[in-house]
Write a protein that binds this DNA or RNA. Structure first.
Lengths: 204, 204
DNA sequence: CTTGAAGTTGACTAAAAGGTAAACTATTAA
DNA sequence: TTAATAGTTTACCTTTTAGTCAACTTCAAG
């Protein structure tokens, strides 16, 4: 019953796009509305703040798109280390496309926004952390599987996943900062190097 | 001749502090002025925009503080790999203090701001890139020295430095996002692991 | 002790931003 | 066909922000 509309979806999409290309803090509700082709009255019909919208946009982006991609690449039917190298290559190829289309490497919105909104915007930073936490699990699980089959050195899988994830997100962010894809090109090898190897002894 | 003042320094300090704790995009000139205890008229006496001030603040922070620390840790009189592990430990200890003082791991302002202002604020993002580029050189040089004495596996030192730097900055950013120091605790070992080891073969 | 350079202040404007509400429109179930 | 529901629009208000300016203060050199 009632009128139907895709304004909500347009707002979510516009918000995600602007957050990704620009940043969260610099965004205004007016800008989002303009991009989405929606009047401010309608914005407040669907959301009660920029924060709510942004959190919803991150959520949507993961559950209606990102998750599926990760599930496919991290399929248990793929060899554990291949999951990881496939993933890195996919990200690299993806950012090549992004750069072609937007003239800029844009990196990972959750990571950028997560870092930007720490202790500044509860809803958004919590959502970013939630998604990053889920992504970390894929790494963790692949590492455990690799260890089980002996293709990765033993050691706390959760720790190692964090480390690999930091390398990955750090590289993506550098690629964004310098608009330079070379930060991503050898991620597959770097990831392998990190995993295949015996963990170093604690220093001192 | 004329009146003397430290308002400019107070503005630089306030700006850096707010950028670090909050973020660049969310900052207003009014907020900076309030924190610095300076009236807006004086702000515009010294700077002509938020962008100019922020770039100057990053510049100052590096040349009047950061550089010295890096020079000391990356001294050529220290064994190459020790420079790197010492550095990682220093960062870890530093962020412990930061968390104690501010209740939050704050990470690296250049990296956060660099990622936030890409293609959004020329002056600031350029300054962030400049400083990050200088920092990368310390890694690069230490890696080259380590290779020369045989304590690190051979391979393109610039590439390896980028990789290590990504791991480092990625870990710092994760620590900020999750307000969790465990992302930094084993950085010294992780860094060693990355360097000591033969680089993996290119995948496929 | 005056003059000019250096810095400060407060009051102001204009624009942008957040936010509200009432009237309006489209859809559909009864 | 009408009434309720879902969504849209416009006009409006308030607050915040960027940015300007002329009057004022402080300092030190001549």
């Amino acid at each position: 019953m009632g009128r139907k509309s895709d304004a909500k979806e347009r707002l979510l999409e516009a918000a995600l796009d602007l957050i990704w290309k620009r940043s969260y803090g610099v965004l205004t509700i007016d800008a989002i509305c303009e991009k989405a082709g929606v009047k401010k009255g309608s914005f407040y019909y669907f959301f009660d703040s920029k924060s709510t919208l942004a959190a919803a946009a991150l959520h949507e982006s993961w559950y209606s798109c990102g998750k599926e991609t990760w599930d496919k690449i991290f399929s248990a039917s793929t060899a554990p280390l291949d999951r990881i190298t496939d993933f890195m290559k996919t990200v690299y190829d993806g950012q090549i496309e992004v750069q072609k289309e937007h003239g800029q490497v844009l990196g990972c919105p959750c990571f950028s926004v997560g870092s930007e909104t720490t202790s500044e915007d509860q809803a958004v930073s919590e959502k970013a952390r939630e998604i990053l936490g889920k992504q970390l699990r894929y790494f963790e699980s692949a590492i455990r599987d690799a260890q089980a089959e002996g293709s990765s050195a033993p050691g706390d899988a959760a720790e190692r996943a964090k480390c690999l994830f930091s390398l990955f997100e750090g590289s993506l962010a550098q690629a964004r900062i310098h608009n330079d894809l070379t930060y991503l090109r050898n991620l597959p090898e770097a990831a392998l190097g990190m995993l295949r190897v015996q963990q170093a002894e604690p220093v001192r």
